[in-house]
């Protein structure tokens, strides 16, 4: 089995890696904001429920959550309701949304009260204050912790293989059956390239937001 054959096979796996990454990001970023608002709610029972939920999701290994999402509905209902891929996305989105929510919460709570009050006395609605005044400042503040989390997500996609999704690592592992170990090590190149691009992107965003200071 030659180098190109392996590379093509790994690129096939990379497709799933990218899909899991992109879908998780697109869905978990807004969901995280909703969860953040829930945990900051003035309606205490809601805040407690949300905080408990975040504790459970952050407290259980993501790999286990993937397994639970795939198998447990089947055990309970007698028939699996989510496909392998859908289970992975569901588990990843919920898990990452909880981590994002805590980053959002930290960012939102770090904005001084005076910013809200300045908006209020200028007759802005609460929604306007949040979207026109607060949000951009939050984005700037959370960019660094977010880049950490997003980079972790790239590598967490490898957990999908626990329910036989053939992402990059699993694609490489399949060669091990033929006695080939090097494809597994070769996958590192794919991850490094992926994370390298993200690092450059985040650097660009940071520069973009450099024109003002908080």
């Amino acid at each position: 089995m030659g180098f190109w054959e392996v590379t093509l096979s790994l690129l096939g796996g990379l497709e799933y890696t990218c899909l899991i990454f992109a879908l998780t990001l697109v869905l978990a970023l807004p969901l995280g904001l909703v969860i953040a608002f829930g945990s900051m709610s003035k309606f205490k029972p809601l805040a407690y429920v949300v905080k408990t939920f975040v504790w459970i999701i952050r407290g259980v290994p993501l790999m286990l959550q993937v397994i639970i999402f795939f198998y447990v509905p089947g055990f309970l209902l007698g028939t699996p309701i989510l496909s392998r891929f859908a289970s992975v996305i569901a588990a990843f989105v919920i898990n990452y949304a909880c981590y994002f929510s805590e980053i959002y919460r930290g960012g939102i709570e770090s904005i001084p009260r005076g910013q809200y009050e300045a908006g209020q006395v200028l007759g802005m609605t609460k929604t306007q204050v949040f979207f026109k005044v607060i949000l951009m400042q939050v984005v700037k503040r959370i960019l660094a912790p977010m880049s950490n989390e997003v980079i972790t997500l790239v590598k967490d996609t490898a957990l999908a293989r626990v329910i036989m999704i053939v992402e990059v690592i699993q694609a490489a592992q399949n060669f091990a059956g033929y006695g080939l170990m090097w494809p597994l090590f070769y996958t590192a190149v794919f991850y490094l390239a992926f994370v390298g691009i993200l690092t450059i992107l985040f650097g660009y965003f940071e520069k973009k937001l450099d024109y003002y200071k908080i």
Partner: peptide
């Protein structure tokens, strides 16, 4: 609120 304007001690300009 719109009847009044308020200038704060800490300015509270919007930095962005």
């Amino acid at each position: 609120r719109l009847h009044f304007g308020l200038v704060f001690q800490s300015f509270n300009l919007f930095p962005q």
